[in-house]
Write a protein that binds this DNA or RNA. Structure first.
Length: 279
DNA sequence: GACCAGGTGTCCG
DNA sequence: CGGACACCTGGT
């Protein structure tokens, strides 16, 4: 068990920030979460409004993986401080979502996940991913008897018939082709990792089923290119409604994607309305 | 049952 | 280049 204290680390906010799909509240125990990533399951506990996060893993596993996964060497407070006080909307958004971080997730999983995300909504995306994992991931058991499945490897997803009945709709052929490229070695993810942002974007855009938005999401969430700024309908709506159609990323050079997350989380979870409803 | 959200491919100008 | 439209599915 490892305890982490950090004022910019909130599991619930991260789970609701739209960047990950396999981090879910544990239905049996309050304030606990279960994460599946890198072929591992991690239980997490965080009391509401606490800056302490408890990770149920060994110190070694934390040092080798989860510290990196949660990007714990980066100071997110420094990003938030770059928001000009006269930007009321973003100031509020960073207050509401101050515990958001950009995770270091697996590129392959993110490529598939964000292909599924196109023209789709989050519950459906999660559902499709779970179906894929249950059908083609590796089955595992926790010490207390829970069953869980790892994310499938590329070679498991390269036959189109295996992608039926996963709720993927027309996206099945995109995933089939991606899986085939990765499995056969035609596409080497290690090569993508060392590319510049522009090279990586071009490479992603050349793939069947990946357009501008998905490419930017894969860059930000799968390759940790935090200068990437995906514009989905939510972001476009906010730019339209709050910024008169033009949002300058000038104050956020090099970490535009972090700012995007604050906007997305704030907009998507409609938190001010919820606050009012609670009163 | 009609209609809608959501991002990309495709076709057309 | 930009605009129009089809594509699947699950939700109203």
């Amino acid at each position: 068990m490892v305890k982490v204290r950090n004022d910019n680390f909130n599991i619930e906010q991260i789970a609701k920030s739209g960047q990950c799909f396999r981090l879910a509240p544990n239905p049996n125990e309050a304030h606990t979460w279960t994460l599946i990533a890198y072929d591992k399951l991690l239980d997490i506990k965080q009391e509401p409004n606490s800056n302490e996060v408890i990770l149920f893993c060994s110190q070694q596993e934390f040092d080798e993986l989860w510290k990196y996964y949660f990007d714990l060497d980066t100071d997110y407070g420094a990003y938030i401080e770059c928001v000009p006080p006269d930007d009321i909307y973003l100031t509020r958004a960073t207050q509401i979502g101050s515990g958001i971080r950009i995770l270091n997730q697996e590129p392959w999983e993110m490529m598939v996940s964000f292909m599924i995300s196109q023209n789709n909504n989050i519950p459906r995306i999660k559902h499709s991913i779970e179906l894929l994992c249950q059908a083609y991931g590796e089955k595992n058991h926790t010490s207390d008897g829970r069953v869980w499945f790892s994310f499938p490897k590329a070679c498991q997803l390269m036959e189109i018939e295996k992608l039926q009945n996963m709720g993927l709709g027309y996206r099945d052929k995109y995933i089939q082709q991606l899986a085939e490229s990765v499995c056969t070695g035609k596409l080497n993810i290690q090569d993508l990792k060392v590319m510049t942002d522009n090279e990586l974007r071009t490479a992603l855009l050349s793939m069947y089923g990946i357009g501008t938005k998905v490419a930017n999401c894969i860059m930000l969430f799968g390759f940790h290119r935090i200068a990437s700024f995906p514009k989905d309908v939510w972001i476009k709506r906010i730019i339209e409604q709050q910024y008169g159609g033009h949002f300058s990323t000038e104050p956020y050079k090099g970490f535009e994607g972090v700012i995007q997350q604050y906007i997305f989380y704030y907009a998507m979870n409609k938190l001010d309305l919820k606050d009012k409803a609670d009163i």
